[in-house]
Structure formats: structure tokens, C-alpha cells
Design a protein around this nucleic acid. Sequence first.
DNA 1: CGGGGCGTTGACTGAGATCAATTATGGTGG
DNA 2: CCACCATAATTGATCTCAGTCAACGCCCCG
Lengths: 253, 253
Amino acid sequence: VAGECDNPLIRKFEYLHDLSDAEKVVLAGLVSKHVEIAADADILCDGDRPRTSNLLLEGVVFRYQITPDGKRQIMSFHIPGDIFDAQNFLLESMDHSVGALTACKVAVIPHERLRALTEEHPRLARAVWKDTLVDAAVFREWIVNVGRRNAYQRIAHLVCELYARMEIVGLAKDGRMAWPFTQTEIGDATGLSVVHVNRTMQELRHDKLISLGSPSLTIHDWEALQGAGQFDPRYLHLRPANGGPPSPRSPHK
Amino acid sequence: VAGECDNPLIRKFEYLHDLSDAEKVVLAGLVSKHVEIAADADILCDGDRPRTSNLLLEGVVFRYQITPDGKRQIMSFHIPGDIFDAQNFLLESMDHSVGALTACKVAVIPHERLRALTEEHPRLARAVWKDTLVDAAVFREWIVNVGRRNAYQRIAHLVCELYARMEIVGLAKDGRMAWPFTQTEIGDATGLSVVHVNRTMQELRHDKLISLGSPSLTIHDWEALQGAGQFDPRYLHLRPANGGPPSPRSPHK
DNA sequence: CGGGGCGTTGACTGAGATCAATTATGGTGG
DNA sequence: CCACCATAATTGATCTCAGTCAACGCCCCG
């Protein structure tokens, strides 16, 4: 009944919540019409007062803010399965912008729809709420990342987080993950300059932790990368023992 | 009926939501037993799995994390009216710690109580949810603060935020606010070293933006401080035209 | 009056920013 | 298939903001 692998929201929710089949059907029903968005387009702008929220079906988007002196800070990346602007259901207006990092497919969910959902399905309401709380946990972790880690650690941490999150929606597997990010974007997410991101990623490659291939990144040594980034997946609040790739080799040690 | 000024939660919610008197009574009912906590005590520790959430009635608490290499990053400050661990209602375990910055008084709300509240009062459920979304907005702003602003801007921004938030619960007025923070704490919140916080705050004082008096801080030039910190209160999502102190002088210009 | 915590100061250092090219790379039109 | 262009990655040189180290003063408190 409920699509199983084709709906990234459900796939993700299975890691975060405990849903009945009936609830999955309801969730699947959220995806009716969807919209295509070009890469680099802005999906939402600071100040907007949207009457819908968006479930990302394909592609990568990011939240960002431009400071008065023209610097950009990326506050989060979102991958399929994320309702990246769920907060607009309850907050009047956008306090930041959302851009499409790649071409995207997005399901548009009117807020009336969400309101009905939350009233008729308290458990699903809590699931969506919980999702926004996990978002907040990720924000907190990014504060730590940017505030207290050096360049090497920051990038290692970011790679780990993206891997863990991508894995559960099928964008990463066996240490290999989608990597549509430019170094400028990584810099804006970690509070570093492009130049320094470049040098640091070279270092990560030199240390044999990762390697890059066209639109993908391979993690060669998960343990080491996780250690370098001080990555502890607990803040992602995944259900079982998720949050790490099957290190191609020794599972222990 | 509903306490008006003695309950900081209600006072804050009036800025964030639109509540009926009946709803205020329900909220007031949340504060039954409360607990005293000593300054510097940890209220919650990383890994805890609490079955209650806490409404801060008096004092200041902060969320923080210690990195493996021993650095502390503070992720948020909380003041009376904040349910600083609301996320525990839906997330299994703490992914950070919470400490008491000053001696505190806290109302303990069992999660069953919250569950009943959300089921019987959907509007209040949304109010609490919205509160957690505003928290998340603050986290996002802190990412920008730490990621893209220099020391002077970071501290100016933090002072503005604290002022705006304290004002609505009566801890700040006419440019004067409670200031229980040590420079170490400011440093850990802004990702700076104590030494640099000290020098930067001297600069802020020298520039006549602020001055310090025992347990209070006075903002002498709100406009300038706000400009210096690039502070735009929209992210706090307060209702009317809040988010700034009545600059003792010219309201416009 | 002897700590201990906090604020302050000075001297030195260094991670990462900035500036300025240079070199891939992928897509495009001819 | 190839010249061409824009975007992204890379490199080298230099600079600076903020960190680190190490004192020292102040004030509260027992």
C-alpha cells in the first residue's frame, strides 16, 4: 500500500518514528503534486510568508543567510525526506532563505493540509514535530562545529553527518555518497574560506580518509573520519544503531 | 484568574502566541511543584533520558557541550519563561548538557502532563511546538554569529538578543538588563577565548555602546549596538514591534 | 590575611583569511 | 571533434584576527 522505497519521507520516518501502515498511507498522501526546481534557484527568501511547506523528494537544498557585509552562512543541508521548511507551519515569516543546491523535486504541502493532519493524527503530528526537533539538534551540533572545531575537524564532521543522513534515504552506501557540493558551499557551511576548504580537503584526501570522484565522495576510513570530526551520531536521533556506514573492513577495533 | 506577571511562561507566550484566558489557566496549572537549583549545578547531562521537562521560573541556564578535546561550546542561554528542554518530550535522550548559570527555580513538568496537554489543547500544543521552533531559529542565528561575524559583532549580537528576550519577561528595561554572565561564558557562547572577550567588551565600552555595573549591563546606544551586531530581531518571532529597547532618545532616525 | 574566581594586560604565535593568479573541467555551439 | 567560456579547483604569498601563555590586580569570603 504505502510506497516503501520510493517515498523518502517514509523511509526516513521509519528511522525516526514508529509508524503503523495506516499512518504511512496518510504520509504517502502528502505527496500529491510536486514541483521541479532548477539548480541554484531560491526556493524561499528571507521575509517570505509562505502558506505551504515543502517535502524534498529529490535533490539537495540548503538554508542560508546573507549578512549585511555580504557573507553567506549556510545553516543546514537538506536531502530527500526532509520537510525543510516545516517551521513555516507555525512561524509567520522566513528569517532566512532556502536555495536549491542541485535541481530538485519538491512536494508542496499546504498548511491547511498539515493542520488537518496534526488534528486528525496526533501521532503523525508528533512525528513531524519530532522531525523539527531533530533539525534543531543538528543546528546545535553545527554551532559546536563552527564554534569549537578547527577546519579539519569541521569538514570531517560535516562529511560524517551527511553520510549518516544520506545513508538512511539511500543516497549513500558502502562508504560512497552523493557529493554535489562545491568547496564554496562547504566553506559557507563550516565558516571557512574556499581556499582553506580546498587545502583542508586535500589534507583529508592525503590522510586517506576520503577521496572524491565526480559527483561522489568515498569514505575510506570511517573510524578515522569519525574520530577526526568528533562525530557522535546520537544527535541525529536515529532509531537503531544507525549513523555509521559499514566500514568496508573491520567492524570492530 | 491566570497569574499575569508572576508567570514568565505566560508573559512570554503572550508575545509569541494568541491565547485565551482559559488557555492561560491551563498553562498556569503547569506550574505546580518547583525545584531550586544551585548555581553551577548541572540540570541535565548528555545521555540522560528524562521523563520530565523543565520550565525555568527564575535564573539563567545554558545548554552546552564539551568536545572530546575539552572545549566547551554553549549553544543557548535560557531565561525565565523558557521550557529549555522541551525537546525531551519527543526525543529519547539528551545530546547535550544543561547547566545552571545562576541559582534557579524550575517547574518540573512530567511528560505525561505534556502529552495530556497536547491532546486536550491542540492550540497549546502548537504554542509549545512553536516555542521549540523559535529555539531552533535562535540556534540558526547563532550559527551565523559564530560562523560569519567577528568578535565585536558576535558579542554585540549576543547582547542584543539577550536584551530583546529579557525585556519581554521583565529582566530588562530602559536599556538596562540583568547580566550574570562571566566572560568565560560569553566566550564559550561566541566561540571566542576569554582574553579576546575581555578586550572586545572593553572596546564596546570604550565605544560607548554598553557599560557594566555589578550584575547588570546597560545599553547606551541601542541603534549602534544593533548595527554593530547586525541584529535583526525578526528571528525571535515576537508578536508586535518588539525586539528592541526604547532607545532613551530618538525613536526614529 | 590567604586563597580562589574573575577581570585585565602584555607579548608572542598561529590558524585561517585575503589577494591574486593559474589550472582543471564540464558544457556549448560551430 | 574542437575552440570557447564559465565554473570550480588549486596554488603561492602575505596578512590579521584571535588564540595561547603568563602574569598581575581586584574583590569576596572564610
